[in-house]
Design a protein around this nucleic acid. Structure first.
Lengths: 207, 207
DNA sequence: GTCTATAAACCGATAGAC
DNA sequence: GTCTATCGGTTTATAGAC
Protein backbone atom coordinates (compact mmCIF):
# COMPACT_ATOMS: atom_id res chain seq x y z
CA UNK A 1 0.00 0.00 0.00
CA UNK A 2 1.74 3.13 -1.22
CA UNK A 3 0.79 6.62 -0.23
CA UNK A 4 -0.94 8.75 -2.89
CA UNK A 5 1.36 11.05 -4.80
CA UNK A 6 -0.43 14.37 -4.48
CA UNK A 7 -3.71 14.15 -2.56
CA UNK A 8 -3.42 13.61 1.20
CA UNK A 9 -5.29 10.83 2.94
CA UNK A 10 -8.95 11.32 2.05
CA UNK A 11 -10.50 10.24 5.35
CA UNK A 12 -11.30 12.98 7.83
CA UNK A 13 -8.36 12.44 10.14
CA UNK A 14 -8.44 14.89 12.99
CA UNK A 15 -4.64 14.94 13.30
CA UNK A 16 -4.22 15.77 9.62
CA UNK A 17 -6.82 18.50 10.00
CA UNK A 18 -4.98 19.94 12.99
CA UNK A 19 -1.75 19.97 11.00
CA UNK A 20 -3.38 21.80 8.11
CA UNK A 21 -5.27 24.25 10.33
CA UNK A 22 -2.07 25.28 12.10
CA UNK A 23 -0.11 25.44 8.85
CA UNK A 24 -2.59 27.78 7.13
CA UNK A 25 -1.50 31.03 8.85
CA UNK A 26 2.16 30.10 8.35
CA UNK A 27 1.77 29.65 4.59
CA UNK A 28 -0.36 32.81 4.37
CA UNK A 29 2.28 34.89 6.13
CA UNK A 30 5.51 33.52 4.68
CA UNK A 31 4.61 31.68 1.49
CA UNK A 32 5.26 28.10 0.47
CA UNK A 33 9.05 28.15 0.55
CA UNK A 34 9.13 30.44 3.58
CA UNK A 35 7.73 27.75 5.86
CA UNK A 36 9.75 24.67 6.83
CA UNK A 37 8.36 21.27 7.70
CA UNK A 38 9.91 21.73 11.14
CA UNK A 39 7.89 24.91 11.67
CA UNK A 40 4.71 23.15 10.55
CA UNK A 41 5.40 20.27 12.92
CA UNK A 42 6.10 22.62 15.83
CA UNK A 43 2.88 24.55 15.15
CA UNK A 44 0.92 21.31 15.40
CA UNK A 45 2.82 20.08 18.48
CA UNK A 46 4.41 17.21 16.58
CA UNK A 47 7.78 16.28 15.14
CA UNK A 48 8.78 16.27 11.54
CA UNK A 49 8.62 12.52 11.04
CA UNK A 50 4.94 12.41 11.94
CA UNK A 51 4.02 14.82 9.16
CA UNK A 52 5.17 12.28 6.59
CA UNK A 53 2.79 9.73 8.06
CA UNK A 54 -0.15 11.92 6.99
CA UNK A 55 1.22 13.62 3.89
CA UNK A 56 3.48 12.17 1.24
CA UNK A 57 5.51 15.39 1.01
CA UNK A 58 5.41 19.14 1.57
CA UNK A 59 3.60 19.81 -1.70
CA UNK A 60 0.78 17.42 -0.76
CA UNK A 61 0.45 19.07 2.64
CA UNK A 62 0.21 22.47 1.01
CA UNK A 63 -2.41 21.31 -1.50
CA UNK A 64 -4.35 19.84 1.42
CA UNK A 65 -4.32 23.23 3.14
CA UNK A 66 -5.60 24.89 -0.03
CA UNK A 67 -8.39 22.39 -0.59
CA UNK A 68 -9.51 22.39 3.04
CA UNK A 69 -9.70 26.19 3.00
CA UNK A 70 -11.66 26.13 -0.22
CA UNK A 71 -14.18 23.62 1.10
CA UNK A 72 -14.71 25.53 4.35
CA UNK A 73 -16.11 28.60 2.59
CA UNK A 74 -17.47 27.19 -0.67
CA UNK A 75 -21.07 26.77 0.50
CA UNK A 76 -21.09 30.10 2.31
CA UNK A 77 -21.73 32.06 -0.88
CA UNK A 78 -24.47 29.81 -2.20
CA UNK A 79 -27.22 30.89 0.19
CA UNK A 80 -26.51 34.57 -0.36
CA UNK A 81 -26.63 34.44 -4.15
CA UNK A 82 -29.71 32.22 -4.24
CA UNK A 83 -31.82 34.38 -1.92
CA UNK A 84 -35.21 35.40 -3.42
CA UNK A 85 -34.68 39.11 -2.76
CA UNK A 86 -34.35 42.01 -5.26
CA UNK A 87 -30.93 42.12 -6.99
CA UNK A 88 -29.76 45.35 -5.34
CA UNK A 89 -30.59 43.91 -1.93
CA UNK A 90 -28.70 40.73 -2.80
CA UNK A 91 -25.73 42.86 -3.86
CA UNK A 92 -25.75 44.66 -0.51
CA UNK A 93 -25.99 41.39 1.44
CA UNK A 94 -23.28 39.76 -0.65
CA UNK A 95 -20.89 42.68 -0.14
CA UNK A 96 -21.43 42.62 3.63
CA UNK A 97 -20.91 38.86 3.89
CA UNK A 98 -17.92 38.98 1.56
CA UNK A 99 -16.28 41.78 3.56
CA UNK A 100 -16.96 39.96 6.82
CA UNK A 101 -15.41 36.83 5.40
CA UNK A 102 -12.35 38.70 4.14
CA UNK A 103 -11.89 40.41 7.52
CA UNK A 104 -12.22 37.17 9.47
CA UNK A 105 -10.17 35.01 7.08
CA UNK A 106 -7.20 37.17 6.24
CA UNK A 107 -5.04 34.03 6.09
CA UNK A 108 -7.19 32.44 3.43
CA UNK A 109 -7.43 35.62 1.36
CA UNK A 110 -3.67 36.03 1.60
CA UNK A 111 -3.14 32.45 0.51
CA UNK A 112 -5.33 32.90 -2.56
CA UNK A 113 -3.59 36.15 -3.49
CA UNK A 114 -0.22 34.47 -3.10
CA UNK A 115 -1.29 31.70 -5.46
CA UNK A 116 -2.42 34.27 -8.03
CA UNK A 117 1.01 35.88 -7.87
CA UNK A 118 2.90 32.60 -8.08
CA UNK A 119 1.01 31.38 -11.14
CA UNK A 120 1.69 27.66 -10.74
CA UNK A 121 -0.41 26.13 -13.54
CA UNK A 122 -1.59 23.08 -11.57
CA UNK A 123 -2.73 25.07 -8.55
CA UNK A 124 -4.21 27.82 -10.74
CA UNK A 125 -6.40 25.19 -12.35
CA UNK A 126 -7.50 24.02 -8.92
CA UNK A 127 -8.45 27.55 -7.88
CA UNK A 128 -10.20 28.45 -11.11
CA UNK A 129 -12.33 25.31 -11.13
CA UNK A 130 -13.01 24.49 -7.50
CA UNK A 131 -13.71 27.80 -5.82
CA UNK A 132 -13.03 31.10 -7.50
CA UNK A 133 -14.72 30.22 -10.76
CA UNK A 134 -18.07 29.68 -9.08
CA UNK A 135 -17.89 32.86 -7.01
CA UNK A 136 -16.81 34.87 -10.05
CA UNK A 137 -19.67 33.50 -12.15
CA UNK A 138 -22.32 34.17 -9.51
CA UNK A 139 -20.93 37.67 -9.01
CA UNK A 140 -21.07 38.77 -12.64
CA UNK A 141 -24.48 37.17 -13.12
CA UNK A 142 -25.82 39.26 -10.23
CA UNK A 143 -24.27 42.41 -11.67
CA UNK A 144 -25.70 41.67 -15.11
CA UNK A 145 -29.11 41.25 -13.53
CA UNK A 146 -28.74 44.73 -12.03
CA UNK A 147 -27.73 46.34 -15.33
CA UNK A 148 -27.63 44.24 -18.54
CA UNK A 149 -25.91 47.07 -20.46
CA UNK A 150 -22.58 46.92 -18.63
CA UNK A 151 -19.70 44.47 -19.03
CA UNK A 152 -20.61 42.37 -16.02
CA UNK A 153 -17.39 40.34 -15.98
CA UNK A 154 -15.23 43.44 -15.79
CA UNK A 155 -17.49 44.83 -13.09
CA UNK A 156 -17.15 41.59 -11.12
CA UNK A 157 -13.37 41.94 -11.22
CA UNK A 158 -13.68 45.50 -9.95
CA UNK A 159 -15.97 44.41 -7.11
CA UNK A 160 -13.70 41.59 -5.99
CA UNK A 161 -10.64 43.84 -6.29
CA UNK A 162 -12.16 46.49 -4.05
CA UNK A 163 -13.17 44.03 -1.34
CA UNK A 164 -9.93 42.09 -1.09
CA UNK A 165 -7.68 45.15 -1.39
CA UNK A 166 -9.35 46.90 1.53
CA UNK A 167 -8.43 44.02 3.83
CA UNK A 168 -5.13 43.03 2.25
CA UNK A 169 -3.57 46.42 3.01
CA UNK A 170 -4.96 46.63 6.54
CA UNK A 171 -1.48 46.27 8.02
CA UNK A 172 -0.04 48.93 5.70
CA UNK A 173 -2.95 51.34 6.06
CA UNK A 174 -2.33 51.72 9.79
CA UNK A 175 1.00 53.32 8.99
CA UNK A 176 -0.60 56.11 6.99
CA UNK A 177 -1.47 59.39 8.72
CA UNK A 178 -5.05 60.09 9.72
CA UNK A 179 -5.94 56.43 9.89
CA UNK A 180 -9.33 55.59 11.41
CA UNK A 181 -10.28 52.21 12.85
CA UNK A 182 -13.59 52.27 10.98
CA UNK A 183 -11.62 51.69 7.78
CA UNK A 184 -11.28 48.08 8.99
CA UNK A 185 -14.99 47.63 9.80
CA UNK A 186 -16.62 45.22 7.31
CA UNK A 187 -20.02 46.93 7.58
CA UNK A 188 -18.47 50.32 6.86
CA UNK A 189 -16.34 49.07 3.97
CA UNK A 190 -19.14 47.07 2.33
CA UNK A 191 -21.54 50.04 2.47
CA UNK A 192 -18.85 52.24 0.92
CA UNK A 193 -18.31 49.79 -1.94
CA UNK A 194 -22.05 49.46 -2.42
CA UNK A 195 -22.40 53.22 -2.83
CA UNK A 196 -19.58 53.37 -5.36
CA UNK A 197 -20.94 50.45 -7.38
CA UNK A 198 -24.50 51.73 -7.50
CA UNK A 199 -24.15 55.52 -7.56
CA UNK A 200 -20.48 56.28 -8.21
CA UNK A 201 -18.65 59.16 -6.56
CA UNK A 202 -20.95 61.87 -7.85
CA UNK A 203 -24.24 60.26 -6.82
CA UNK A 204 -26.19 60.90 -3.67
CA UNK A 205 -23.89 60.14 -0.70
CA UNK A 206 -26.52 58.21 1.33
CA UNK A 207 -29.68 56.46 0.20
CA UNK B 1 36.85 49.93 4.04
CA UNK B 2 33.88 47.78 5.01
CA UNK B 3 30.81 47.29 2.89
CA UNK B 4 27.62 49.04 4.04
CA UNK B 5 25.26 46.88 6.07
CA UNK B 6 21.98 47.36 4.23
CA UNK B 7 22.21 49.73 1.28
CA UNK B 8 24.01 48.42 -1.81
CA UNK B 9 26.81 50.39 -3.38
CA UNK B 10 25.38 53.83 -4.15
CA UNK B 11 27.13 54.48 -7.45
CA UNK B 12 25.23 53.57 -10.59
CA UNK B 13 27.05 50.34 -11.36
CA UNK B 14 25.71 48.74 -14.48
CA UNK B 15 26.52 45.23 -13.26
CA UNK B 16 24.62 45.79 -10.02
CA UNK B 17 21.71 47.14 -12.03
CA UNK B 18 21.75 44.08 -14.28
CA UNK B 19 21.70 41.83 -11.23
CA UNK B 20 18.72 43.66 -9.75
CA UNK B 21 16.85 43.87 -13.04
CA UNK B 22 17.13 40.11 -13.56
CA UNK B 23 16.29 39.36 -9.92
CA UNK B 24 13.08 41.42 -9.95
CA UNK B 25 10.88 38.90 -11.81
CA UNK B 26 12.28 36.05 -9.71
CA UNK B 27 11.35 37.75 -6.42
CA UNK B 28 7.97 38.77 -7.83
CA UNK B 29 7.15 35.20 -8.84
CA UNK B 30 8.55 33.19 -5.93
CA UNK B 31 9.02 35.59 -3.03
CA UNK B 32 12.09 36.43 -1.00
CA UNK B 33 12.76 32.99 0.45
CA UNK B 34 11.71 31.25 -2.76
CA UNK B 35 14.70 32.62 -4.69
CA UNK B 36 18.26 31.47 -3.98
CA UNK B 37 21.40 33.50 -4.51
CA UNK B 38 22.46 30.82 -6.99
CA UNK B 39 19.31 31.42 -9.03
CA UNK B 40 19.90 35.19 -8.95
CA UNK B 41 23.48 34.70 -10.11
CA UNK B 42 22.41 32.39 -12.94
CA UNK B 43 19.76 34.89 -14.08
CA UNK B 44 22.44 37.57 -14.37
CA UNK B 45 24.95 35.25 -16.06
CA UNK B 46 27.32 35.34 -13.09
CA UNK B 47 28.36 33.07 -10.25
CA UNK B 48 27.38 33.36 -6.64
CA UNK B 49 30.66 34.84 -5.44
CA UNK B 50 30.30 37.87 -7.68
CA UNK B 51 26.97 38.84 -6.13
CA UNK B 52 28.71 39.45 -2.81
CA UNK B 53 31.05 41.89 -4.47
CA UNK B 54 28.11 44.19 -5.20
CA UNK B 55 25.79 43.44 -2.29
CA UNK B 56 26.72 42.72 1.31
CA UNK B 57 24.08 40.00 1.61
CA UNK B 58 20.78 38.73 0.19
CA UNK B 59 18.68 41.18 2.21
CA UNK B 60 20.63 44.15 0.83
CA UNK B 61 20.17 42.86 -2.71
CA UNK B 62 16.43 42.51 -2.15
CA UNK B 63 16.13 46.01 -0.68
CA UNK B 64 18.08 47.29 -3.67
CA UNK B 65 15.55 45.68 -6.00
CA UNK B 66 12.69 47.30 -4.09
CA UNK B 67 14.27 50.76 -4.05
CA UNK B 68 15.28 50.66 -7.70
CA UNK B 69 11.74 49.71 -8.66
CA UNK B 70 10.34 52.47 -6.51
CA UNK B 71 12.59 55.11 -7.99
CA UNK B 72 11.83 54.07 -11.56
CA UNK B 73 8.17 54.97 -11.23
CA UNK B 74 8.08 57.52 -8.43
CA UNK B 75 8.25 60.59 -10.64
CA UNK B 76 5.85 59.13 -13.17
CA UNK B 77 2.81 60.00 -11.04
CA UNK B 78 3.89 63.53 -10.22
CA UNK B 79 3.25 65.08 -13.63
CA UNK B 80 -0.17 63.47 -13.90
CA UNK B 81 -1.43 64.69 -10.53
CA UNK B 82 -0.01 68.18 -10.95
CA UNK B 83 -1.52 68.79 -14.40
CA UNK B 84 -3.60 71.99 -14.59
CA UNK B 85 -6.66 70.21 -16.03
CA UNK B 86 -10.14 69.73 -14.51
CA UNK B 87 -10.24 67.07 -11.75
CA UNK B 88 -12.38 64.59 -13.68
CA UNK B 89 -9.97 64.81 -16.60
CA UNK B 90 -7.04 64.28 -14.24
CA UNK B 91 -8.82 61.23 -12.83
CA UNK B 92 -9.25 59.78 -16.29
CA UNK B 93 -5.60 60.43 -17.20
CA UNK B 94 -4.38 59.03 -13.89
CA UNK B 95 -6.42 55.83 -14.30
CA UNK B 96 -5.08 55.28 -17.82
CA UNK B 97 -1.46 55.83 -16.81
CA UNK B 98 -1.87 53.73 -13.67
CA UNK B 99 -3.40 50.84 -15.64
CA UNK B 100 -0.68 51.08 -18.28
CA UNK B 101 1.97 51.00 -15.58
CA UNK B 102 0.34 48.00 -13.85
CA UNK B 103 0.09 46.12 -17.15
CA UNK B 104 3.71 46.81 -18.09
CA UNK B 105 5.17 46.26 -14.62
CA UNK B 106 3.41 43.16 -13.38
CA UNK B 107 6.57 42.12 -11.55
CA UNK B 108 6.72 45.34 -9.56
CA UNK B 109 3.02 45.23 -8.71
CA UNK B 110 3.41 41.63 -7.59
CA UNK B 111 6.40 42.54 -5.46
CA UNK B 112 4.48 45.30 -3.70
CA UNK B 113 1.49 43.04 -3.11
CA UNK B 114 3.79 40.36 -1.73
CA UNK B 115 5.30 42.85 0.71
CA UNK B 116 1.83 43.84 1.87
CA UNK B 117 1.03 40.20 2.58
CA UNK B 118 4.32 39.50 4.33
CA UNK B 119 4.05 42.45 6.69
CA UNK B 120 7.74 42.84 7.53
CA UNK B 121 7.79 46.01 9.68
CA UNK B 122 11.02 47.46 8.27
CA UNK B 123 10.04 47.02 4.64
CA UNK B 124 6.48 48.16 5.35
CA UNK B 125 7.87 51.40 6.68
CA UNK B 126 9.96 51.79 3.52
CA UNK B 127 6.92 51.28 1.31
CA UNK B 128 4.60 53.50 3.32
CA UNK B 129 7.07 56.41 3.40
CA UNK B 130 8.98 56.24 0.15
CA UNK B 131 6.44 55.38 -2.50
CA UNK B 132 2.95 54.25 -1.67
CA UNK B 133 2.25 56.98 0.85
CA UNK B 134 2.70 59.71 -1.71
CA UNK B 135 0.61 57.99 -4.37
CA UNK B 136 -2.13 57.27 -1.83
CA UNK B 137 -2.19 60.87 -0.64
CA UNK B 138 -2.35 62.33 -4.14
CA UNK B 139 -5.08 59.87 -5.04
CA UNK B 140 -7.44 60.68 -2.18
CA UNK B 141 -6.79 64.41 -2.56
CA UNK B 142 -7.89 64.19 -6.18
CA UNK B 143 -11.01 62.24 -5.22
CA UNK B 144 -11.84 64.74 -2.49
CA UNK B 145 -11.51 67.53 -5.02
CA UNK B 146 -14.07 65.73 -7.19
CA UNK B 147 -16.55 65.29 -4.35
CA UNK B 148 -15.79 66.72 -0.87
CA UNK B 149 -18.76 64.84 0.68
CA UNK B 150 -17.34 61.34 0.31
CA UNK B 151 -14.71 59.54 2.40
CA UNK B 152 -11.85 60.14 -0.01
CA UNK B 153 -9.40 57.80 1.72
CA UNK B 154 -11.73 54.85 1.46
CA UNK B 155 -12.45 55.75 -2.15
CA UNK B 156 -8.72 55.85 -2.87
CA UNK B 157 -8.37 52.32 -1.51
CA UNK B 158 -11.21 51.18 -3.73
CA UNK B 159 -9.62 52.79 -6.78
CA UNK B 160 -6.22 51.22 -6.16
CA UNK B 161 -7.83 47.87 -5.41
CA UNK B 162 -9.70 47.85 -8.71
CA UNK B 163 -6.65 48.73 -10.77
CA UNK B 164 -4.19 46.28 -9.26
CA UNK B 165 -6.68 43.41 -9.04
CA UNK B 166 -7.52 43.58 -12.74
CA UNK B 167 -3.89 42.94 -13.63
CA UNK B 168 -2.94 40.68 -10.74
CA UNK B 169 -5.47 38.07 -11.79
CA UNK B 170 -4.63 38.28 -15.50
CA UNK B 171 -3.11 34.81 -15.45
CA UNK B 172 -6.09 33.36 -13.63
CA UNK B 173 -8.71 35.17 -15.68
CA UNK B 174 -7.57 33.48 -18.88
CA UNK B 175 -8.68 30.15 -17.40
CA UNK B 176 -12.27 31.34 -16.99
CA UNK B 177 -14.79 30.66 -19.76
CA UNK B 178 -15.74 33.44 -22.17
CA UNK B 179 -12.49 35.28 -21.61
CA UNK B 180 -11.81 38.18 -23.97
CA UNK B 181 -8.40 39.68 -24.66
CA UNK B 182 -9.75 43.20 -24.20
CA UNK B 183 -10.02 42.48 -20.47
CA UNK B 184 -6.22 42.89 -20.41
CA UNK B 185 -6.22 46.19 -22.35
CA UNK B 186 -5.22 49.10 -20.06
CA UNK B 187 -7.31 51.61 -22.02
CA UNK B 188 -10.37 49.39 -21.77
CA UNK B 189 -9.90 48.63 -18.07
CA UNK B 190 -9.19 52.22 -17.08
CA UNK B 191 -12.28 53.48 -18.91
CA UNK B 192 -14.37 50.82 -17.18
CA UNK B 193 -13.07 51.86 -13.74
CA UNK B 194 -13.64 55.52 -14.60
CA UNK B 195 -17.28 54.84 -15.43
CA UNK B 196 -17.83 52.93 -12.19
CA UNK B 197 -16.15 55.60 -10.08
CA UNK B 198 -18.01 58.50 -11.63
CA UNK B 199 -21.41 57.10 -12.53
CA UNK B 200 -21.69 53.69 -10.83
CA UNK B 201 -23.36 50.71 -12.42
CA UNK B 202 -26.74 52.38 -12.89
CA UNK B 203 -25.48 55.54 -14.56
CA UNK B 204 -25.24 56.25 -18.24
CA UNK B 205 -23.07 53.52 -19.83
CA UNK B 206 -21.02 55.87 -22.03
CA UNK B 207 -20.41 59.59 -21.77
C1' DG C 1 1.08 6.40 15.42
C1' DT C 2 4.90 9.08 17.15
C1' DC C 3 9.37 9.46 17.95
C1' DT C 4 14.85 9.88 17.12
C1' DA C 5 18.55 9.65 14.02
C1' DT C 6 20.28 10.43 9.79
C1' DA C 7 20.90 10.73 4.75
C1' DA C 8 21.40 13.71 0.66
C1' DA C 9 20.75 18.06 -1.23
C1' DC C 10 20.55 22.87 -0.88
C1' DC C 11 21.06 27.28 1.52
C1' DG C 12 23.68 31.88 2.53
C1' DA C 13 28.12 33.43 3.00
C1' DT C 14 33.36 33.47 2.87
C1' DA C 15 38.28 32.67 1.35
C1' DG C 16 41.49 32.96 -1.92
C1' DA C 17 43.39 32.13 -6.75
C1' DC C 18 43.70 34.63 -10.99
C1' DG D 1 36.15 42.05 -10.83
C1' DT D 2 35.05 37.28 -11.51
C1' DC D 3 35.87 32.89 -10.62
C1' DT D 4 36.22 28.06 -7.93
C1' DA D 5 36.08 25.69 -3.72
C1' DT D 6 34.32 25.20 0.53
C1' DC D 7 32.40 25.98 5.35
C1' DG D 8 28.63 25.54 8.54
C1' DG D 9 23.90 25.36 8.87
C1' DT D 10 19.23 24.14 7.27
C1' DT D 11 16.19 21.87 4.16
C1' DT D 12 13.17 17.87 2.60
C1' DA D 13 12.62 13.27 3.17
C1' DT D 14 13.59 8.47 4.86
C1' DA D 15 14.71 4.49 8.09
C1' DG D 16 13.84 2.23 11.96
C1' DA D 17 13.10 1.90 17.20
C1' DC D 18 9.21 1.81 20.35
Amino acid sequence: MTKPAVIPHPQDNEVAERIMANALPLFADHGYSGVSMRAIAAAAGLTIGTLYHYFSNKEALYLGVLQASYASCAEQWQTIFDAPTPPLERLRDYLLQYCKFAAENKEFVGLVKREQLEGNPQRMELMANVLLGEQFEKTWQLLEEINPDIDARMAANSLIGMVVHHFEIAALRQRFPQHRDEYDDPARVSEHIYQILVHGLLGKPAE
